[in-house]
């Protein structure tokens, strides 16, 4: 494991901790897209089916369990916790996320590394992760103002994707047999989705002002 991959995993973990902290400290999920969180829960459940078949390392297994548990915990908070549930604004969170699930699954049926149950669900999870942030970005854009913790959550998620690209470049240069088209192309698409957000994030950071996205 190289430093980019480790830093990527850590920012990913940090993003989830920031989100949990926001929900826990404010007992509110305002500005958070439940649909994006549900998509991430599906992503982790579909991708880590190999928990039962392949063992890579204690680190991998531990992180997989953390990602599954935390994503389910976040969805549970938004759907079930009485105080958090009240702050959920479903009129802002209208993205038709089931379309993303259907399209990703269809794509996985055609584009995969092997036609096996695990490989199709793995490819599906990669495609779905690439677009899972869309409901969140649309929600932020619609509400205009972004609170600090939600902004940091999206920032760390984007940083995680950027670091994974550096990790692939590093692996491509150092590992002779490193080719991974599905993950890398999807990863670049996913990172590109954050470009707009990052632009406004850096402007607000430079001006030391509150993050605002144009309508």
């Amino acid at each position: 494991m190289n430093i980019f991959r480790l830093a990527g995993d850590m920012t990913h973990l940090l993003s989830i901790l920031v989100l949990l902290l926001k929900i826990y400290a404010t007992k509110s999920c305002s500005g958070v897209s439940r649909k994006t969180q549900e998509l991430y829960a599906i992503v982790f459940l579909a991708r880590y089916l190999d928990l039962f078949t392949d063992f890579i390392s204690v680190y991998n297994t531990f992180m997989k369990i953390v990602f599954i548990a935390s994503s389910l915990a976040i969805v549970w908070c938004i759907r079930v916790h009485p105080m958090v549930k009240r702050s959920y604004d479903k009129d802002l969170d209208t993205f038709r996320h089931y379309l993303l699930v259907a399209a990703s699954f269809l794509l996985a049926l055609f584009l995969h590394e092997k036609f096996t149950f695990l490989e199709i669900f793995w490819a599906f999870s990669i495609y779905l992760e690439a677009v899972a942030i869309l409901p969140q970005l649309v929600l932020l854009q619609r509400s205009g103002n972004v609170d600090n913790l939600t902004g940091q959550y999206v920032f760390f998620l984007g940083a995680y994707r950027g670091l994974y690209i550096l990790n692939w470049i590093y692996r491509y240069l150092t590992e002779p047999r490193f080719t991974r088209w599905i993950a890398c192309v999807s990863g670049v698409v996913q990172t590109a989705l954050y470009a707009d957000f990052f632009y406004y994030y850096f402007i607000s950071w430079k001006n030391n002002s509150k993050l605002k996205l144009p309508a």
């Binding site: 991959r5 995993d9 990913h12 190999d50 392949d54 890579i56 390392s57 991998n60 992180m63 997989k64 990602f67 590394e113 092997k114 793995w122 994974y164 990790n167 047999r177 080719t179 991974r180 993950a183």
Partner: peptide, 10 residues
């Protein structure tokens, strides 16, 4: 030989 497409990333 280790599978070339081993899923060692998260």
């Amino acid at each position: 030989v280790k599978d070339q497409v081993a899923k060692d990333e998260l």
